[in-house]
Every structure is written in structure tokens, then in C-alpha cells.
């Protein structure tokens, strides 16, 4: 697992957006909303990342309706959740340690 960390910003937000079943466009919109439009995922970036995360078994297909034109939905797996948690612990450690720097210009 340690080799997989740190997560890229893209992977971090995709995992976060898949805490509930979500489709490609839903992930793009949710990440835009969560980051105030700072992170806008390209559809090609997302397509590649989803395929990689499925191979790693961090996410899985939640539903696919071949009969109707329903969008494919994906969801986080237990393994994905663990990777996300490990990353959050790492980030929290960074933020906690950074406090020894003091409040720089009142921004933190």
C-alpha cells in the first residue's frame, strides 16, 4: 500500500466522490463543487484513472444497465477506503506538523 501513496489530487477526489455510487459526469460535477471549480477533471483523465482504480480494486462497477441508456456507476471498495484513510492520516500528520511554523500572515 505504501508504494501507492501519496495519492495524486485526481485520485484523492475520485475516491472521495465514490463514497456513494456515482457515474463519470457525476464525479466531474461533484469534484468541481467540492473544490469551488479549482479542480475540473478532464474526461480523458477520469477515464484513465477509473480504469486504473478498477484494476487496483480500489473501486468497482456498481451498476450497468445495458438495456436502458443508464450511465455506468462506480463505488469505492473496502481496499479503496483503506487507501483513502491512509492518505488522510498522512495528510493530517503533515498539517499537524506544519503548525510548528506558527500562523503565517494569519492565513492558516
Amino acid at each position: 500500500m505504501s508504494k501507492e501513496l501519496p495519492l495524486t489530487e485526481t485520485t484523492f477526489y475520485i475516491l472521495l466522490a465514490l463514497r456513494h455510487p456515482n457515474h463519470g459526469y457525476g464525479i466531474i460535477l461533484e469534484v468541481e463543487e467540492l473544490t469551488g471549480n479549482r479542480v475540473v477533471l478532464g474526461a480523458g483523465t477520469l477515464y484513465g484513472a477509473i480504469n486504473t482504480l478498477i484494476k487496483k480494486r480500489w473501486i468497482k462497477l456498481f451498476s450497468e444497465d445495458l438495456e436502458s441508456r443508464k450511465k455506468k456507476e462506480y463505488i469505492l471498495t473496502q481496499q479503496g477506503k483503506e487507501a483513502f484513510e491512509t492518505e488522510v492520516i498522512r495528510l493530517k500528520e503533515l498539517v499537524d506538523i506544519s503548525k510548528i511554523m506558527g500562523d503565517i500572515n494569519g492565513k492558516i
Binding site: T8, T10, V39, V40, L41, G42, A43, G44, T45, A49
Partner: peptide, 23 residues
């Protein structure tokens, strides 16, 4: 070849450095 209706948000298939390098 792909396209998107221009909604003033812009459009790029690859949005981060890692996926651009891979592309």
C-alpha cells in the same frame, strides 16, 4: 475525435500533469 458544446468552462480531455505525460 471528440467534442463538447462550449459552455465557457473550456474543454480538455486531460486535466492533470500525470495523465498528460501518460497521454
Amino acid at each position: 475525435y471528440v467534442r463538447k458544446v462550449n459552455d465557457s468552462k473550456g474543454f480538455e480531455l486531460y486535466s492533470d500533469v500525470d495523465s498528460k505525460i501518460e497521454h
